[in-house]
Design a protein around this nucleic acid. Structure first.
Lengths: 196, 196
DNA sequence: CTGCGCCTAACGAACGTTCGTTTTATCTTT
DNA sequence: AAAGATAAAACGAACGTTCGTTAGGCGCAG
């Protein structure tokens, strides 16, 4: 038998993190035990510690990977020459697609970050605050330039981001609405609601 | 004379539930211990059990109180003769005000319901599903009557409710925006985005 | 032969809860 | 008003379980 590097270039640590994300999603970080996780990985609990340092390291990996993805995308969008509204739509669609494609990771980052130990917790919250501030400034610029009707930028950003994060309950539902319809309808609601 | 309950007309059980709500909010249901709670109440952990039956009974009380408040309000609104848009606005404003006035309770009901034991869990989810279905039907009727532009009702409802529940992160922030401004801007965003 | 990855076993800590008992408050009877 | 009875609420200690994590050893690949 060969090494269980299971598939191609994914290390066992990656496998652990991926299985953990499913588990954290179902039970929450606090209620998911390492023995639970080990069973899903196909190994005893103690053996996990050959690949990770602690339970919270898994949470850190998930939270900061997601935060990084969003920050990188924002950077890319910001340095493009589109209109503010177009930028916002791209950002919203990216958030929605992340919610589709990386559901577990995004959900955990959204809902379990409290369990991060310091100093990671403060770090995470800083990144989050900066991200939202950047979005708020983007909205404010759109209003100045007359592309959008006046609205408190902070409230607009809060509304957009919260609406998107609510897609988690679509995931848990019987999905009578297709992903494409969900994306397009939500974008219409959130973007058209800003247009002048 | 009637039994003199501690100060005012709130029983000790109510005090426990209120303190618990603050604790569950800060640490999450799972991470909040009965010893923690007891300390906040000013008593030993064992003494709590003279007033409550279990930790999860507290969670049940909170979740079903909130669910009941929303259901009652919906009933009241539904049997009024206003336009659909006006009904929706009233519902949204009620949700926002609940998020302001009963923040801890609403947040816990929103985020910690997974920890409900059966059969309460199924019960809670049923009520939730029915509530959202009623809202969806309301939106659908508004579209039929030409009050609103066409949109997938389920998505509209999901967007509204999720946006509102995101007010929790306003609560945790430095509150550079006043509650009134938050309410009016969010209502404008969510309601004007539906108008034809 | 080296060393990594897995195992079993065990650690101390914390959990929710129960127990038997004592303190405190209220009601009843003188 | 005093004295005794009853109920409510507090206590410290302990229960059994589960938690995250560590220690030490065995086996198999390079």
């Amino acid at each position: 038998m060969a090494k269980i590097r299971s598939k191609k270039n994914s290390s066992k640590k990656d496998v652990i993190i991926e299985k953990a994300s499913r588990l954290f999603l179902e039970k929450g970080f606090g209620a998911a035990s390492m023995r639970d996780l080990a069973e899903h990985v196909g190994v005893e609990a103690a053996s996990l510690y050959n690949h990770i340092q602690s339970k919270s390291e898994i949470l850190q990996a998930i939270c900061f990977k997601v935060a990084n993805d969003f920050l990188s995308h924002l950077d890319a969008v910001q340095s493009s020459p589109e209109s503010v509204l177009k930028k916002l739509e791209r950002i919203i669609r990216f958030h929605i697609r992340m919610m589709m494609d990386q559901y577990e990771f995004v959900y955990i980052s959204d809902h379990e970050w409290r369990h991060l130990p310091e100093p990671y917790l403060s770090n995470f919250l800083n990144q989050r605050r900066n991200y939202r501030r950047s979005l708020s400034e983007l909205v404010a610029r759109g209003i100045e330039k007359g592309e959008m009707k006046p609205i408190e930028p902070y409230v607009a950003v809060l509304t957009m981001l919260s609406a998107i994060s609510g897609i988690e309950s679509w995931h848990r539902s019987r999905k009578t609405v297709s992903p494409e319809s969900l994306e397009n309808n939500m974008v219409k609601y959130l973007i058209d609601g800003l247009k002048k």
